[in-house]
């Protein structure tokens, strides 16, 4: 098989898996996030999963025009980050976190506004946003160790959600940092390989979200 075709196939397989996983998460969130004892920050999850699955469908359906929707993608990225900030703020339940989230989204917004190339705006937004989100997630894990809650992490939906978010953004950060380098040194296939790894990471994080949704089933949180 031609190597380019193989790369395309792997990429499309990971994208298809990601799409499948997000649809499962969306369905589960619609079932479980409406339960009465579910924390408020979890109730908003179906909206986010709907937006995510919509973006996956758009990316799958119009791969040829992806380059033209970079600006739109960048806007979506900022909304995406803002949503995760709100989610993490809900998990922490503290006002300073909200202030921290607003302050941390600013550099991403500035890069987005200042960039001349649409690709730069996306990469800038992703790098700043991912860095901030990962920092917040590390703070969550630290809190978990310093003040352990009564609910064990393996039964806590927030733990699986934050693990999924951390995992994905940790992978995303270097991928978006180095992918332009691979393309500039004409190592497009290596760039594609790294990009498909990132897509598989997205699938794994969606699986962790599925685990979080199943925790909600018997949640007394």
């Amino acid at each position: 098989m031609d190597i380019t075709m193989l790369a395309q196939r792997l990429l499309s397989t990971s994208e298809l898996l990601a799409l499948l996983a997000i649809v499962v998460v969306l369905v589960l969130s619609l079932i479980y996030c409406r339960k009465r004892n579910v924390p408020p920050y979890m109730r908003r999850l179906p909206f986010y999963f709907f937006a995510s699955s919509l973006s996956e469908v758009v990316a799958e359906s119009f791969p040829g025009v992806a380059i033209y929707i970079f600006w739109g993608f960048a806007v979506f990225e900022n909304i995406y980050f803002f949503y995760f900030f709100r989610f993490l703020n809900g998990v922490f339940g503290q006002l300073p976190m909200r202030a921290y989230a607003v302050v941390s989204i600013l550099p991403s917004f500035i890069v987005f506004m200042a960039s001349r190339q649409p690709t730069d705006s996306v990469i800038g937004a992703v790098i700043f946003g991912s860095f901030t989100i990962v920092t917040l997630c590390i703070m969550y894990f630290r809190t978990l160790m310093v003040y352990p809650p009564t609910l064990a992490p393996e039964r806590d939906p927030a733990f699986w959600m934050v693990t999924g978010i951390t995992f994905y953004f940790l992978i995303r950060l270097p991928v978006f940092w180095f992918t332009p380098y691979f393309y500039t040194v004409r190592r497009q296939l290596l760039g594609d390989a790294v990009y498909s790894i990132q897509k598989f990471a997205l699938v794994i994080s969606y699986i962790l979200f599925i685990k979080a949704m199943t925790c909600l089933k018997n949640c007394t949180c």
């Binding site: 193989l6 792997l10 290596l190 390989a193």
Partner: peptide
Amino acid sequence: MSEKLYMLITFTGV
């Protein structure tokens, strides 16, 4: 880059 190497990178990475 060969087909095998590409597969190896992706598989090992995942």
